[in-house]
Amino acid sequence: MKSRVIVSTTINGEPTEFLCEPRQSLLEVLRDVLGLTGAKEGCNNGNCGACNVLMDGVLVNSCLVLGVEAESHRIETVEGLAVNGKLHPLQQKFLEHAALQCGICTPGFLLSAKALLDHNPDPSEAEVRHWLAGNLCRCTGYDKIVRAVLDAADSA
């Protein structure tokens, strides 16, 4: 067995090849191989959502995906949210609503919220809460996060 595998992907719109060990998770690859440290490790077993990214538009815990599984797939991370120097509306609303305190969970929440709004542009508060239930925040009590997402949906 080869100790490392070449994987071809598209990351934030850029065709990207990387070399990874078969045991490395996508989260490890993003952070340690590609230097994209926006995705965070909070638990490494799919319970906190801090590592969430989109894979072909589908929300995944990048700690539960192997790097080699990214072959031929399209990955979106927090680093790709702002385009041409302009923050994504969710990023802007998180700032305006003070929806982050320490900020460690923020990248994961932004990706989860993006996945929600991409397929449901006008969610109810209950839908937002349900969709974000896979992301833990220990600072805010979620109030301002939920408001930021609802406001981003309204202003889209």
Binding site: K40, V78, E79, L87, G103, L110
Partner: peptide, 12 residues
């Protein structure tokens, strides 16, 4: 901005 773009540097 650093904290909503993933640019802020945390411990890990």
């Amino acid at each position: 901005v650093d904290k909503v773009t993933g640019r802020a540097v945390y411990g890990a």
